[in-house]
Design a protein around this nucleic acid. Structure first.
Length: 279
DNA sequence: ATACGCCCCTGGTGGC
DNA sequence: TGCCACCAGGGGCGTA
């Protein structure tokens, strides 16, 4: 689920529900996610007011009134389960942490595979946290310029797909949106990154931004006010053009001579692309 | 510095 | 029905 657009959507849902609320109780059912979270997390959170939210790459930061931030990463299988006041459903499997607020709501962190992460850090030095310090620019932010992209790709022998998955190059793209952005830009996932600077990069940058912006808009249309408790994707999954579509006709060049969307494996992960359009 | 394979963990799916 | 291989939206780490 969670690449940048999903994380952004979840963050907005959390902000709508938690901002300005006081954390009255925190359940910590297990502390060993990707890394152990602070064992004293409940004690450090109870009584705090949530003052605001931010996102950096695929990380969510919940700012608290004691100059600390709660960092959340959803990994592969993480999601947030919101419970309205009076909802007395039993905790689902793999709900590791639950935040209860003074207005009776609860936000549960559910992550079956436990590739996600939770940490608590000083807000003032957020950017220097070990998980954030190496992140590249935000793809929708002012630092992600054509000049930057050209320089970042120049000289790299690694495939385009691998380069864009590198969070130190640009923060927030994952397997789905890399495939979608490369399709939009008509660039093969196998093309050497070093051969992209120039005209191709000039297509790639807006392709990345449009792909993400469209996905955020679609996620927002279904998830604006809450975080979907069943973990389903927003509407953007219906807008996937190549991801997961191996064997289906290319949406932009259906029929012969194009044999349709192809799947290949790059550094252990699936890529989807149209060999006719993407070069 | 860069690139690659492997690992962490659980669950769903499809084939036999 | 049962078992098994394979796949999954992430990313760190050790090794060449």
């Amino acid at each position: 689920m969670p690449e940048l657009p999903e994380v952004e959507t979840v963050m907005r849902g959390l902000a709508a529900r938690l901002e300005g609320r006081v954390l009255t109780r925190v359940e910590q059912r297990r502390a060993d996610l990707r890394w152990p979270m602070p064992a004293d997390l409940p004690a450090r959170l109870v009584g705090r007011t949530v003052t605001g939210f931010a996102r950096r790459g695929k990380y969510i930061l919940a700012r608290l009134d004691d100059a600390h931030s709660l960092l959340l990463h959803l990994g592969m299988s993480g999601r947030i389960l919101l419970r309205a006041p009076g909802t007395n459903i039993p905790p689902p499997p793999h709900e590791h942490v639950v935040l209860h607020t003074n207005d009776g709501w609860a936000a549960g962190f559910v992550d079956p595979r436990r590739f996600g992460a939770i940490d608590l850090l000083a807000t003032a030095t957020e950017d220097r946290h070990r998980l954030l310090v190496g992140l590249g620019p935000e793809p929708l932010g002012p630092d992600f310029t054509l000049a930057y992209l050209n320089a970042a790709l120049a000289g790299r022998a690694t495939p385009a797909k691998t380069a864009l998955l590198d969070q130190s190059l640009v923060a927030g793209l994952g397997n789905i949106y890399v495939a979608e952005a490369l399709f939009r830009a008509r660039i093969s996932p196998q093309r050497r990154a070093g051969s992209i600077p120039g005209a191709r990069a000039a297509r790639l940058l807006p392709a990345i931004q449009a792909t993400l912006a469209d996905a955020i808009a679609a996620g927002g249309s279904s998830l604006r006010d809450y975080v979907q408790p069943d973990g389903e994707l927003g509407y953007f999954q219906h807008a996937w053009r190549v991801y997961g579509k191996a064997g289906t006709p290319c949406p932009d060049c259906p029929g012969p001579p194009c044999a349709g969307v192809r799947r290949l494996v790059q550094s252990g992960r699936s890529s989807f692309y149209c060999p006719t359009l993407q070069r």
